[in-house]
């Protein structure tokens, strides 16, 4: 099976300090892939590189054999909650509608059909009652649901999420995982930066273990082994900081 996303010899540095080193990996189509690794392992840097938000020192990112730049519109990005200004004057529905902008191109405004798609995305995330709420009034879990509703409204086939389960309530966590599994049935692919080692097996079917470079990758069965985790989290720590 040819992979959906291929990362070839990716090197990224922040001011001459390497953040990712010789990263070679691939993401299988229709997988739920977790990206795990200790703090400072370069997890966020890796997904941002895949989305071309960071200029690498060297390396290639390909989506179905072509440079990722051409396929970015197929990607729905769910950023960390702290990355946007939540005091921005917008309602929940306004933010979810932004998912539709991808299909509008320049200048054209979203229409009624886009609005109904956004509303049904809100319904999926059980947030329809909050549609006219100002986004600053939401709790952490609700903010995450809004971001995922925006990704659903975008109707992309690749979801890239940066720690979506960080600092949210257990109900939202279960909801997000349920939606993820349901959308996988519909053919979507998930790449998720994940922090909790104890839930990797339960929530994902593929994993990339990262610490500056790829320690292991593949299905949970083949890659999620104690020796790999130990290598990434314990043996390597200290040698890079």
């Amino acid at each position: 099976m040819t992979p959906l996303i291929t990362v070839k010899d990716l090197n990224v540095a922040y001011q001459e300090k390497p953040a990712l080193w010789h990263v070679n990996m691939s993401i299988q189509e229709n997988s739920r892939t977790a990206i795990v690794g200790p703090n400072g392992a370069g997890k966020s840097t890796l997904i941002k590189s895949i989305m071309k938000l960071i200029r690498p020192v060297s390396g290639k990112i390909e989506i179905e054999g072509r440079d990722a730049r051409h396929a970015l519109k197929r990607v729905a990005y769910v950023p960390q909650k702290g990355e946007v200004n939540w005091d921005f004057p917008a309602t929940v529905l306004d933010v979810v509608l932004m998912g539709r902008y991808v299909h509008k191109g320049w200048i054209k405004r979203p229409n009624r059909k886009d609005e109904s798609i956004a509303l049904s995305a809100l319904e999926t995330m059980k947030m329809e009652a909050f549609k006219n709420r100002q986004i600053s009034e939401l709790s952490g879990g609700q903010k995450q649901r809004v971001f995922i509703a925006r990704a659903i409204a975008q109707d992309a086939d690749i979801y890239i999420m940066d720690e979506p389960l960080q600092g949210i309530d257990i109900t939202t966590e279960k909801l997000i995982i349920g939606i993820m599994k349901q959308l996988q049935q519909e053919g979507k692919t998930f790449i998720v930066v994940h922090h909790h080692l104890d839930t990797v097996e339960e929530y994902f079917d593929h994993v990339v273990i990262l610490n500056k470079t790829v320690i292991a990758e593949g299905t949970i069965g083949s890659a999620w082994r104690k020796e790999n985790i130990n290598r990434a989290y314990y043996e390597m720590s200290g040698s890079h900081d």
Binding site: K52, L53, Y77, M98, G105
Partner: peptide
């Protein structure tokens, strides 16, 4: 960032 990915 979202704007960039969305092609704006």
């Amino acid at each position: 960032k979202f704007a960039y990915i969305a092609g704006f």
